[in-house]
Design a protein around this nucleic acid. Sequence first.
DNA 1: CACTAAATGAACATGGTTTCCATGTCCATC
DNA 2: GATGGACATGGAAACCATGTTCATTTAGTG
Lengths: 157, 157
Amino acid sequence: MGSKGLRRLSADDVGVRRTRQRAAILGALGGCVDFVSARELHALLTSSGATIGLTTVYRALHDLECAELVDVVRDDPGGRYYRQRPAAGHRHYLICRCCGLSRPVDAEVVERWAERIATDSGFTDVEHTLELSGICADCLPAASNGEPPCRRPVPGS
Amino acid sequence: MGSKGLRRLSADDVGVRRTRQRAAILGALGGCVDFVSARELHALLTSSGATIGLTTVYRALHDLECAELVDVVRDDPGGRYYRQRPAAGHRHYLICRCCGLSRPVDAEVVERWAERIATDSGFTDVEHTLELSGICADCLPAASNGEPPCRRPVPGS
DNA sequence: CACTAAATGAACATGGTTTCCATGTCCATC
DNA sequence: GATGGACATGGAAACCATGTTCATTTAGTG
């Protein structure tokens, strides 16, 4: 397995190849505004004509995750959802539990807090995960009627 | 399924019974300092002589989670780990990726930040999850040698 | 003591993710 | 143009935590 991640996905890099499949995955990810699961991405790709295996999608997403080129959130049962990282640096999101709408939030405060915890605690190599979820304005009417999720069963608390 | 949660686990509550198994689960949870998985808890209970089904452990932990009497963290593949909530209110933890040592951290800053996001965003019913992980001082020597986890394969980034 | 809803637990189902492994593809070299 | 090794692919099967079913047991009540 290509456990080195696909750094820049350029043919110049040693040990990482640019393939039709990876290009397709990157392309599809770029076209998604919100978070998608590996299966959703695979369905998207195959339904648009691409020939690609589910395994390959999982692998590519995993590599992208290691390379920190995508952001990941988890839903309640533990499923992973991926989104292209909008800019440099570590981003956090506020996600609608109903429709999956995702919006990056500024978490500078939390970053600094986490750094302080790290130095104060005696722990090294401290990492953090942070997820915010709620009901967006569009979904509020439906959600308050106890209706099921509008589009996708995305992240939970 | 007991979808009402086991509120106070007192016989006064209508519809919730105190059983040998639940008492054992609560007892075992109380005896654990750090996070345990459902399976670990089940193993702990059966190996100490109790007769209890894995299903029952899952159900009880789920109920406790709903009742907010336990805190939950997830490891990388999505498994859940439970710990008795140390006091009232929402707690966050710093957990050693190597040995599983868990230490509650004061996250007032984050709580307030999350509330502000909630009001600013137009989202309602905003919830947050936050996890910190690192390598504790005791594990640092072993971890830096690339050795495998000391005791348990607990949470990751 | 009898009765009933709640709880139990073994077997089975589920579903997302990972591993296996045979095959395919790319690239440098001969 | 052929060769070989490293990297990549993908279908099938394994994995594993969790959910579901349902016959049986049990707690607590009347």
